[in-house]
Design a protein around this nucleic acid. Sequence first.
DNA 1: GATAAATCGGACGTCAACATCCAATTTGGA
DNA 2: TCCAAATTGGATGTTGACGTCCGATTTATC
Lengths: 153, 153
Amino acid sequence: MFSQTVEYALRTVLHLASVGRSCTTAEIATATQVPRAYLSKVIQSLAAAGIVASHRGAGGGVVLVREATDLTILEVVNAVEPIQRIHTCPLNLAAHGVNLCPLHRRMDSALAMVETALRESTVAEVLSEPTTSIPLCDFPGRGPIAPPCGTLR
Amino acid sequence: MFSQTVEYALRTVLHLASVGRSCTTAEIATATQVPRAYLSKVIQSLAAAGIVASHRGAGGGVVLVREATDLTILEVVNAVEPIQRIHTCPLNLAAHGVNLCPLHRRMDSALAMVETALRESTVAEVLSEPTTSIPLCDFPGRGPIAPPCGTLR
DNA sequence: GATAAATCGGACGTCAACATCCAATTTGGA
DNA sequence: TCCAAATTGGATGTTGACGTCCGATTTATC
């Protein structure tokens, strides 16, 4: 349902938000376990969507452009694999016009729910939520204040 | 989000339910505009899931096994492309164990909503719902009682 | 049994998603 | 200026989804 690339993009953004500074792709790849070479492609999509910015050369790297408190999970997903709502009849039945039949209305409604659910969570919320399973972190946490996670060690 | 094959499977089941008799793949292909050769593969998946049964030879064809009032959209979707819930951490982080982190909890929750939405609609409901856009039918309808649809003309 | 109607099963083709690799380019610093 | 650090862009490889084709098989009917 969600592609591998979506998962990669989310990990990347979460890592950048949690460390709060510029990272090289090599660092992100290690921390998020995303294939290094493919990660650069994912980052290009995120950059095209204005979520991250990348800088070449020595001292370069990738940095989060958007505020974590203002960046939704949906935006990250849509940057790499836009959720395709059903706007017109897939059969192109003339009689249906812009009205979806009961079947496609239900399918589209399910997609709408996904959009809504993903739009209601920001990157900051996901990172700050009290939990024992901290995103990208292989140490058990004990609340909002946790040991350093997702960073190179 | 939903594959082409899912769309094909739904059209097939809706057609069978609406005509209420055995059909040949050629007939279904014409009525549903599904590629004839590929349709046979889709039907094999539906048959493996026990939703339809196919019979070879003269007078053979495909017939709906399940009651339309008891068959959910989810079952049809799952027959050809099972919705993959997120049960364990995609990163295999040992510390997470069976607990999903806030990110994957949200992603899985979105998938759960899709499952629920699709489980709450039966094939019979979709076909009987009053609408001007009757599934598979290119004539405008005026309520539950509509001109013959999705059949060969 | 012969024939025609139908599905079955496997081989094959195409294309996009996922992934890798490397030369080219950019950039900061000695 | 030169070098090392980084991303960029394009070529390439791999795999699964989608789709086609056709001979083999099954079955009703005559």
